[in-house]
Simulated assay, not measured.
Amino acid sequence: MKIGLDIMGGDYAPKATVLGAIEAYKTLSADQKLVLIGDREIATSILQENNANPDNFEFVHTTEVIGMGEHPTKAIVQKPDSSISVGFKLLKEGYIQAFSSAGNTGAMLVGGMFSVKTIPGVIRPAMTTIVPKLKGGLGILLDVGANADCKPDNLLQFGVLGSLLAESVYGISNPRVALMNIGEEEEKGNLLTQASYHVMKDTNMFNFVGNIEGRDLFSGEFDIAVCDGFTGNVILKLAESFYVITLKKGFKDEFFDRFNYEQYGGSPILGLNQPVVVGHGISSPEAIKNMVLLSKNMVESNLIDKIKQAFQ
């Protein structure tokens, strides 16, 4: 297995990404190789400064970088030798089996859809995040930013994608899928959630348990929470602030510690033909390491094949 890592993507790249690669390497088996995509000379220098052997990694040298604020489509087209563009080329050609980056999220979405493309039957790929539960365990929230505007069919498919991720990667049996809404009653919500409720209620593609409200997000009443990307991204950014607030207020709590994004590494883009993971722009070495390990788990679990079978 070869896992591609964009070492130029992220606010603290390439130092944080290369240091994360060093930590990830320590957990990989002999038949799992990390391919560092970016400026080879800089990466080698960082490795040597930290007493890491460059021979432990493969390198694919690139000369361009897509900035965090660049227009995704223009950047992918105008910078073919960027680390993101080259990463997707390697993924499409099968040289690597997974690709991850903490760089420009839009470029990762566009690059994925242009290169490895969407699985036939999937209308729009979705991004996910982990939601810690008060009594232990975790839930999955999607979409968290790939699709700001959605239709009921999108939310239905998000339920399928989230269920397969929960079962395959996180070992959750018969995951419960809930619809994020402003009330528990069937008739509550806007036009999207009202229509989506009936579509999801009538499906046999997953275990639908009805509506949940924002106050239920950290409860044990669901395993998958489905919403449009606008709502999901607002929830995600609010939840991320909890951990930061606890640090600023000077108190430590096991539950709030689980809001630390570093533990989860990144967000899988579900619905593409190959495993792709997007990390947080401020990813630390620990987050980069966990992003690589999540990519590995997606490959080992055969998640993509299971999604393809579900949408045949």
Rank of each mutant, 00 (worst) to 15 (best):
F57C: 06
V60K: 08
T62M: 04
T62I: 08
E64T: 11
E64S: 09
V65Y: 00
I66L: 04
G67R: 04
G67A: 08
G67C: 05
M68K: 05
M68Q: 10
G69D: 15
P72D: 14
T73V: 12
A75S: 13
V77I: 11
Q78F: 07
Q78W: 02
K79P: 08
D81T: 07
S82F: 10
S83Q: 03
I84C: 08
S85F: 00
G87I: 10
G87S: 09
G87P: 15
G87Y: 07
F88P: 10
K89D: 14
K89G: 14
L90Q: 11
L90H: 12
L90I: 09
L91N: 04
E93M: 04
E93H: 08
Y95G: 00
I96G: 14
I96L: 13
F99N: 00
S100D: 05
S101R: 00
S101I: 02
S101P: 06
G103H: 07
N104C: 14
N104R: 12
G106K: 02
G106L: 04
M108T: 11
L109N: 15
G112Q: 00
F114P: 01
S115P: 00
V116M: 02
V116N: 04
K117T: 14
K117P: 15
I119K: 07
I119R: 06
G121E: 13
G121H: 09
V122A: 04
I123D: 15
I123M: 11
R124C: 08
R124M: 06
A126V: 09
A126R: 08
M127E: 00
T128P: 00
T128I: 06
T129M: 09
T129V: 11
T129I: 10
T129W: 00
I130E: 04
I130T: 14
L134Y: 14
L134R: 14
K135L: 05
G137Y: 07
I140Q: 03
I140D: 01
I140K: 06
L141S: 11
L141H: 13
L142V: 01
D143S: 12
G145W: 02
G145C: 03
A148G: 13
D149E: 12
C150E: 01
K151N: 12
P152N: 02
P152E: 03
P152Y: 03
P152R: 01
P152D: 02
D153E: 15
N154T: 08
N154A: 09
L155H: 10
L155V: 13
L156C: 08
Q157T: 10
Q157F: 10
Q157C: 11
Q157L: 09
F158P: 04
F158L: 05
V160S: 03
L161G: 03
L164C: 09
A166S: 13
E167L: 07
S168P: 09
V169D: 06
V169G: 15
Y170G: 10
Y170W: 14
